[in-house]
């Protein structure tokens, strides 16, 4: 069916390859930098404030929980900083301070530490947090409402919301290339599609995320959106639009690929990524929310233990 990678294992002693949790986290942070810097240049000082507060509060919650639970402090692995940065990338630049702090509390404590710390969380902590924030404070995360004071040379209506409320006609003048270059409204680090793609390619080449998940996610979005578009072009936007708006790209390269909540084998990874992509477009086109990436990946996280059962048979085991 497919070419399963075969490993040859020699006898001990082994060499340490040099990879660790902290290099992994710092590499992801590094890969996210182009998109983050673009967001900072676009939204200015408020964006810096949100990012700084998010990262620092995530680290603070992590220390606090380590103290209370009497675990060794683990902020050195950079995972908390990474969670804080990714959360800030999804938030609008105008997010109030208490929203950011509650968000990092939910992400670090409820999303990760409660389950036993890094590597034990069944869901992506950042997405758990963003889902809860969306349910509680819809108004503060509605990009149309909160970014109303920004005025750039391009339309500042949140593309997905326009599509939802006014149909395909409202987005007909948006050029995919401009959207890809970040000329749209959205989360601080989610608007600059090109930067996210560059970061993703860097991570794939260095081996920190798996291309199977990212590509199958994007393919899921593409194919489902294409089917909808072919069925009724007057109602549903084309696949390219869905690829470059909302959280699609950050979801494909930074969120769906989170290590402990995604599968490890080839076919499971394809199923996982594709189902998240399909769900994304389903939620966007016929669901209640403007963007479906958050809930789609969370639901895909749920099927992760199930699809992980699809794996090669153990050698020498009689079934």
């Amino acid at each position: 069916m497919f070419e399963q990678k075969k490993f040859t294992v020699s006898h001990a002693p082994f060499w340490h390859v040099g990879s660790s949790v902290s290099t992994r986290s710092y590499n992801i942070i590094f890969a996210a930098l182009p998109a983050v810097l673009f967001g900072v240049f676009t939204y200015g000082i408020p964006a810096v404030g949100v990012i700084a507060l998010s990262v620092s509060s995530a680290i603070t919650w992590e220390i606090a929980f380590n103290k209370v639970a009497k675990r060794p402090p683990c902020i050195g692995d950079g995972n908390a900083a990474m969670i804080g940065l990714l959360l800030a990338m999804l938030l609008p630049a105008t997010a109030p301070w208490w929203l950011v702090i509650t968000g990092t509390f939910v992400a670090v404590i409820i999303g990760k530490q409660i389950y036993g710390g890094i590597g034990a969380n069944p869901f992506n902590p950042v997405l758990v947090s963003l889902a809860i924030l969306t349910l509680s404070w819809k108004n503060f995360l509605d990009f149309n409402e909160v970014l109303v004071n920004y005025d750039f040379s391009y339309p500042m209506a949140y593309p997905l919301a326009s599509l939802k409320h006014f149909g395909v006609f409202a987005i007909s003048n948006l050029k995919p290339a401009a959207l890809l270059m970040g000329q749209q409204s959205g989360g601080i680090g989610a608007i600059f599609g090109l930067g996210l793609i560059l970061g993703g390619i860097y991570l794939i080449i260095r081996g920190y995320i798996r291309w199977e998940i990212s590509i199958s996610f994007l393919a899921g979005v593409w194919i489902t959106a294409l089917l909808f578009n072919m069925a009724d072009p007057a109602h549903y936007a084309g696949p390219v639009f869905h690829l470059v708006t909302g959280y699609t790209l950050i979801g494909a390269f930074f969120l769906a690929t989170e290590d402990s909540s995604s599968p490890v084998n080839f076919i499971p990874m394809l199923i996982y990524g594709a189902s998240a992509g399909v769900l994304t477009v389903l939620i966007r086109n016929i669901g209640a929310f403007a963007d479906g990436v958050v809930f789609a990946i969370l639901i895909a996280n749920l099927i992760n233990p199930l699809v992980d059962k699809i794996r090669p048979k153990a050698l020498g085991k009689v079934i």
């Binding site: 509650t102 809860i132 349910l135 509680s136 503060f140």
Partner: peptide, 10 residues
Amino acid sequence: HPFSFMIEAP
């Protein structure tokens, strides 16, 4: 601004 998540089932 109430944290309305708390009064919902989850």
